[in-house]
Design a protein around this nucleic acid. Structure first.
Length: 890
DNA sequence: GCAAGGTC
């Protein structure tokens, strides 16, 4: 070895790596830097020795990501030039785009006729880089194959579906009238579609939420030292009668006794070191910046040298990091300089070695400040904010956690437990904010409460029985969306914001569906597309498909599968799915029609048809409540202020038609409450009810209340994403590949049109009861007819069995479990059937869970006051309470 | 005019 010096050309994946490698290998000695043929590519030169062989590391040049791209050959770039199905096998070519020709030239000039070897390393640290260069290996064809395969699959699938759905729907609907964009592209991609799926799925979850009423007892106490609010330790109780009984017990003996006072120290830890996803999430939460904007600004700060490389998964500092120096640089800052000084003062005890978030991409450190600045002349507000976030986050990471004292006080009122927690001002127990002093984006939270001692007694200032309704989850925030993508492996930290932006740019969703700022529904195409494919039975909008693809890529890179094998199987499956989707394109049309119908309706939102208004919303007191029909055909009366105002009255599941009339209810207040003409599906209601019914949703209508109790409401959609179309392992369902239906294994129809599934869903839709006789052991007490055993499907009693008389003239109804318990049956209207018990006795109707809850709320308010409510709930007698009522059933 | 992956 030794002798003549040879030239070695090093090609790194990106300029930042090229620079690091050159710095490490040259040990920063004799390193010369000159401009390359491409603007962003410096060329580094230095001397080195590989296994004793003196080398002129002539240049270390770099590419920027992928040098080559893929496109369809010949005339195929023209959309109408071929059937999109051809794109699964049409020839493609790899080429170097015009703006990358410079990189190509750098490599070609330096490497012609040279042997090629691979310096394989996984971290930009001295030891690894030197070892890699001393132990060069053969280039790995498997890795290259995996990248190629992914590129080809993404292009073929993306292009075929995008062309198909864009041309199909643009021809069928006047899209540009909605978007003012004649070149609207309804794109489909293996990353962007699941991203859209997360948004739509959450939206559906909100839509299908059935508000359930609950009751809770609240206690508050005002003294000279302040106000304390105590929560009932049972939390929310869904059984109204039980809640009222307990409440009356408390009102009867309202003296509160403090049973427990606990003080304890709580720590609030600073965040982990900052990586890309966390930067995007926090900028979104703290500054309402979009992830795309955040990355743009971060890139600019990085280019100008103020922060480190912004695309990193790493959230743990390498042990060699000189954290002190970074803090020292910030000492002169007018806002956080004094905090930095405190950190460096070892006597202050503020320093703490940063925690580890457990991620390390072995290439880049966490995002940290690299240059001190008090703001530059060219900076916009976003630059300032992001730089501040990076610096404050870094200072927080090397700080002690905040320490606070929390106090929990427990009370006993008539055997019921209540508790309050908060901070109590006590000598020697002061919250030490530590990192919270610099990390102004977070706070300790919690409230102050006055001090109490064990054994102390008092009469509550207020003791109320309050009602509430369960709420659906909020719309996805951009931070939530990033978390979903991260969790399911959709995109990379460098591309996630891109996928979100694409959806926004292409009208597939809107900022408001992400951030919950608008009061109305999403009108974008995105939901319709997801709905259309979902109706076909394809879970293309779920992340599974991408996950399968990622697994395949990994198998190729490990040599477990060949590129050809993965290409063939992936493309064959997706082509089958594509062809089937095209056959079922009517589903896309239908879904799109729903979209247009809704957006037309929303246009006339303020001047909606007079006939739709049922009453003024009692919750927001502002908007009207209107009769609506969900896309599953179920009826409800909802506040126009949705989703800000969640006041919805779901109507009985068996309603087939409903129309608001001009008849005004003369019982329900505040009026006017317009009556609704209903038509019920006879097969789905008990025989003693009529198909036609003029009803009121104000709470006075016993028929409606009973039908909801027995048959349930239509509020729960046959949930998308659940049920018979559960995801298969390959992420989508296609029967065409095997030629048989995945449900019944028969040929001749697709899985989405399987008759067995149609009948299942039809049954599922006929909410309420099963009409087959499950064994008759009970007879009607009036006419003696044997009664059918049926199953209730209400929120309260789902699955509970009951008997009712098949005769239209009898009201006999009894729960099966009460028969078994020996409590017997009765007719509706007497006092034993659970359905009618409370409502009859209260004289107002107990409303229902998720149904006519306005009525129940009114009732609660009438009794909720400890003064006006001092009467027995069961019989109304003011001389006693329900727990002592002689008429109370067991 | 289409995908996703990179980056100055």
């Amino acid at each position: 070895m030794g002798g003549r010096t040879i030239n070695v050309l090093n090609v790194a994946e990106k300029p930042s790596v090229a620079k690091s490698v050159a710095t490490i290998l040259s040990r920063n000695q004799g390193l010369r830097i000159r401009e390359g043929r491409s603007r962003y590519n410096k060329i580094f030169e230095f001397s080195y020795s590989i296994r004793g062989q003196p080398c002129h590391m002539l240049v270390t040049t770099s590419v920027t990501g992928h040098l080559m791209e893929l496109e369809f050959r010949r005339a195929l770039p023209k959309w109408h030039s071929c059937d999109p199905a051809e794109l699964y096998h049409a020839p493609v070519r790899k080429y170097v785009p015009e703006d990358k020709k410079g990189y190509q030239e750098n490599i070609r000039r330096g490497s012609e006729e040279m042997p090629v070897a691979w310096a394989r390393f996984s971290a930009l640290i001295d030891r690894e880089i030197h070892e890699a260069v001393q132990n060069l290996v053969e280039p790995n064809q498997w890795f290259a194959d995996a990248v190629d395969a992914r590129q080809e699959i993404d292009l073929r699938i993306g292009a075929s579906f995008t062309r198909f759905q864009t041309m199909l729907l643009r021809d069928a609907f006047a899209m540009d009238s909605v978007t003012d964009d004649k070149n609207l592209v309804l794109s489909y991609g293996p990353c962007q579609f699941p991203t859209l799926g997360f948004i739509v799925e959450r939206y559906w979850e909100i839509q299908s939420h059935e508000p359930e009423e609950f009751w809770t007892i609240n206690c508050s106490h005002r003294s000279d030292e302040g106000l304390a609010t105590f929560n009932w330790m049972r939390g929310n109780m869904f059984d109204y009668t039980s809640a009222v009984i307990i409440y009356e017990m408390c009102v009867e003996e309202p003296t509160a006794t403090v049973t427990n006072v606990r003080h304890h120290e709580r720590l609030k830890y600073p965040p982990h070191p900052l990586n890309t996803i966390e930067l995007e999430k926090r900028a979104s939460r703290y500054f309402r910046m979009s992830s795309e904007q955040t990355m743009k600004v971060a890139e600019e700060l990085y280019q100008a040298g103020f922060i480190s490389y912004p695309r990193t998964e790493t959230d743990t500092f390498p042990s060699r990091t000189d954290l002190h120096t970074i803090v020292e640089e910030q000492q002169g800052h007018p806002d956080w300089g004094s905090y930095a000084q405190r950190l460096l003062d070892s006597g202050a005890g503020l320093w703490r070695n940063p925690s580890s978030g457990g991620h390390d991409d072995k290439a880049h450190p966490p995002i940290q400040p690299t240059k001190f600045s008090t703001g530059e002349s060219g900076w916009r507000e976003e630059h300032w904010k992001l730089y501040e976030l990076v610096v404050r986050h870094f200072l927080a990471c090397v700080s002690q956690p905040a320490v606070g004292a929390e106090t929990i006080i427990e009370l006993d009122i008539a055997g019921e437990l209540f508790s309050a927690s908060g901070r109590v001002i006590l000598a020697g127990r002061i919250c030490v904010k530590n990192y919270l002093d610099v990390y102004r984006f977070e706070s300790w939270g919690g409230s102050m409460i006055p001090p109490y001692v064990v054994g102390q007694q008092f009469i509550p200032t207020a003791l109320t029985l309050d009602s509430g309704v369960t709420r659906p989850p909020p719309l996805l925030s951009e931070a939530d969306l990033l978390s979903c993508m991260d969790k399911e492996g959709i995109g990379t930290d460098a591309t996630m914001h891109d996928h979100i932006k694409k959806l926004l740019d292409r009208f597939l969703t809107q900022p408001r569906t992400l951030t919950c700022v608008s009061r109305q529904l999403i009108f974008e195409y995105g939901e319709s597309l997801v709905m259309g494919y979902d109706d076909m039975g394809y879970k293309l909008w779920k992340p599974y498909l991408r996950a399968v693809m990622e697994r395949d890529m990994k198998a190729v890179s490990e040599g477990a599968k060949s590129k050809a094998e993965v290409l063939a199987s992936s493309l064959q499956q997706m082509k089958a799915c594509f062809l089937d989707a095209r056959l079922n394109k009517v589903k896309l049309f239908e879904a799109m029609e729903v979209f247009f119908e809704r957006s037309n309706r929303s246009g006339g939102d303020e001047q909606h048809v007079a006939g739709e208004v049922v009453r003024r919303c009692g919750l927001c007191q502002e908007a009207d409540m209107v009769l609506k029909r969900s896309r599953d055909g179920n009826f409800m009366v909802g506040c126009l202020g949705f989703p800000q105002v969640e006041n919805a009255i779901w109507l009985p599941g068996p309603v087939s038609e409903a129309a608001v009339t001009t008849n005004i209810c003369n019982i329900c207040t505040p009026g006017p409450v317009y009556k609704i003409q209903f038509k019920f599906r006879l097969l789905e209601i008990p025989p003693n009810y009529n198909a036609n019914h003029l009803g009121c949703i104000g709470g006075c209508d016993e028929t409606l209340i009973q039908l909801i109790e027995i048959c349930g409401t239509g509020s729960r959609m046959p949930a998308r994403g659940r049920g018979p179309t559960a995801p298969s392992s390959n992420g989508y369902q296609s029967n065409t590949r095997q030629g048989s239906c995945i449900y019944c294994q028969e040929t001749g129809h697709s899985s989405s049109g399987c008759p067995s599934q149609l009948s299942v869903s039809r049954n599922a839709r006929s909410r309420g009861m099963n009409h087959h006789n499950e064994g008759t052991s009970v007879s009607c007490s009036t006419c003696g007819t044997p009664c059918a055993l049926r199953t209730a499907n209400t929120a309260n009693n789902r699955g509970r069995k009951f008997y009712s008389c098949p005769s239209r003239d009898c009201n006999f109804f009894v729960w099966e479990d009460s028969v078994n318990n020996g409590t017997g049956g009765s007719s509706l209207g007497s006092n034993t059937g659970r359905t009618s018990n409370a409502s009859r006795n209260s004289g107002r109707g107990r409303g229902n869970r998720g149904g006519l809850h306005a009525a129940a709320t009114a009732f609660v308010s009438a009794t909720g006051d400890p003064v006006s409510g001092r009467r027995c709930f069961v019989c109304g007698d003011p001389s006693h309470f329900a727990n002592g009522c002689p008429n109370r059933g067991t």
